Amino acid sequence: MSENVHSDLNRKLRVAARSLGRAGLAHAYGHYSVRLDANHFLVCAPKPMTLLESSDEGTVVPVTGALPDGVLGEVRIHQQIYSQRPDIRSVARSMPPKVMSLSTLSLTPEPRHGFGSYFAPFVPLWDDPLLIRSDEQASALVQVMGKSRAVVMRGNGAVVAGSSPEEVLVLTWYLEDAARVELDVLGCGAARPGKTLTQTQCETRATFSGRILERMWDYLSAGDCEL
């Protein structure tokens, strides 16, 4: 990989990570990565993502093997996703507040509106509130995740994976909005659970055509110091 490409990926990763923090989807904890090739990925510096500076370089991490010194322990989740899912190009571990609240009920958002459709037929739940501190835990979590774009960790945030840092940022925002809607519906105390989108409707609605992804990326990254 050329130096220019590596530098561009570092910058894009910082922009995405800061945007995640500014949107209230991550605080002191969390991490963002992008795949470099089949055997390596780049993870952001181990500091609160909103506080990343233009001089903060990420660390290259092998897809298999020990984590490099200084890399946060839960980055092994990224390792397992890149190892088990060669289609994935970027991963974010974050703490979306509505997702977190909903997960303490052992619930994840249902596809009740357009943004929820991107995770149909359901968002898998890792029903364990403990931190991931071993390769075995990380592998099991990714098995629960399956082919989904996200997995929610009970009382402990979420992991979102996609084809690019831009897509992962947008999907994380969508996941949080789906959790907001789910909590609003539950809060109504309605006698019936309300409607959800059908699988066919979800497949039609979950599109990025018409610059849907680009417009949300522009909205969330607006004003970043490296744009």
Rank of each mutant, 00 (worst) to 15 (best):
G58T: 04
D128H: 09
L130A: 12
S90D: 06
Y219I: 09
T204E: 15
Q137W: 01
A28H: 10
F119E: 06
M153N: 00
D135L: 06
Y118G: 06
E74Y: 05
P46L: 08
T204H: 10
H27I: 00
C44T: 12
G70N: 10
A45P: 04
V185Y: 08
I132K: 01
H27K: 08
A161W: 00
A120I: 05
A23F: 05
R85T: 08
H6G: 02
Y29R: 07
C188E: 09
V71K: 03
S54F: 03
E214I: 01
C188F: 10
C44M: 06
M95G: 08
M216W: 15
A16L: 07
T207H: 06
R149G: 11
M145D: 03
F115Y: 11
V5S: 13
P48V: 01
P68S: 10
R215H: 14
V181Q: 09
V152Q: 01
P46G: 08
E176D: 15
E3K: 14
S106P: 01
I77R: 05
T172P: 02
E182I: 03
S2P: 12
Y82P: 08
S209M: 12
V160F: 05
E214K: 14
V60N: 00
S164Q: 00
L175E: 03
P193L: 11
M145W: 00
S83F: 13
A158R: 04
Y118Q: 06
Q137R: 12
F41C: 05
A45S: 13
A17E: 04
A158V: 05
K47T: 10
L102V: 07
R18V: 11
L25S: 07
L186A: 12
M100S: 13
H6M: 15
P111I: 05
D56K: 13
S7Y: 00
L169C: 02
W126K: 00
L171H: 06
G24K: 04
H40L: 01
R215K: 15
S2C: 06
M95W: 11
L125C: 04
D184E: 13
R76H: 05
Y29K: 03
R11P: 01
D128C: 10
T200S: 14
Q79S: 11
M1T: 12
I77H: 06
G146A: 10
A190H: 14
A140K: 15
R35W: 05
M1P: 08
Q80Y: 04
G65Y: 12
S139E: 14
A23T: 06
M145S: 00
E167K: 05
E53L: 15
G155C: 09
V91R: 09
L220K: 04
F41H: 04
S33T: 15
V152F: 00
A140L: 11
R93H: 15
